[in-house]
Amino acid sequence: MKLNQFVIIGLGRFGSSVGKELMQLGHEVLGIDSNEERVDDMSNILTHAVVADATEEDVLRSLGVRNFDCGVVAIGDDIQNSILTAILLKDLGVKQVVAKALSELHGRVLEKIGVDRVIYPERDMGIRVAHQLVSPNLLDYIELSKDYTIAELTVPKCLSGVSLQELNPRARFGCSIVAINKPQGVIIAPTATDVLSERDVMVIIGTNDQIEDFEETVIR
């Protein structure tokens, strides 16, 4: 895996969580926050952590942020500073800019100014939790786009011993099982001869309707 350099602006719960995980994955992370206490908390975790005002272009330039592969704007509660920081990162030539949005309107503004990816952590987590609450077999749910979703479903007892050829989800429902997580390891791109066992985890891709149809017809 190619190691990248990330700059994270805003070291609150979201920004610090992203930074810690990127470090765990072996990447280099520069954390920036105007709050000295937050920076102190992350100074021994991230590659570098500095106290700075990210809305000042000269400050970002002096920190060399334009040389980073990705900038993450994780500013928690100040929409104006979030937008201004994202504009500066784009103007300075950061290769990819990702920003946390506090609302749909905030997100639309970020998209208008050219942010490469807008993240809605609270909204997206709410959607995932809601789906898990109404579907006992659903372990995780990720919306890829307005049309396609990836879902993780636990294999119930009624499907134990059934091969993918017998199940035939693509022909019957239009969705595809792209991986099976078994106790002995993950099968990527399983074949028709692969057999499901109770408590395996199926990773399924399809539209919301296709996955819902699959779950209601086969699992419930």
Rank of each mutant, 00 (worst) to 15 (best):
K2V: 15
Q5R: 13
V7R: 02
I9T: 01
Q24Y: 06
G26K: 05
H27T: 01
G31I: 00
I32M: 04
D33R: 00
D33W: 00
D40L: 14
D41K: 08
H48F: 12
V50D: 03
A52S: 07
A54S: 05
T55F: 02
E56C: 12
V59G: 07
R66L: 13
G71C: 01
V72Y: 00
A74W: 02
D77R: 10
A86L: 02
A86S: 10
I87L: 15
L89S: 03
G93D: 06
Q96W: 08
V97I: 10
V98C: 04
A101F: 07
G107A: 11
R108A: 12
V109C: 09
E111C: 10
R117K: 15
V118Y: 11
E122I: 03
I127R: 11
Q132K: 14
L139R: 10
I142Q: 12
E143K: 07
S145Y: 03
I150Q: 07
E152C: 00
K157M: 15
C158F: 12
S163W: 09
R170C: 05
A171P: 00
G174T: 04
C175D: 03
K182A: 08
Q184N: 13
V186T: 14
I188C: 06
A192R: 07
V195G: 05
I204A: 08
I205N: 05
T207H: 02
T207K: 02
N208P: 07
D209Q: 14
D213N: 15
V218C: 14
I219G: 04
R220F: 13
R220T: 12
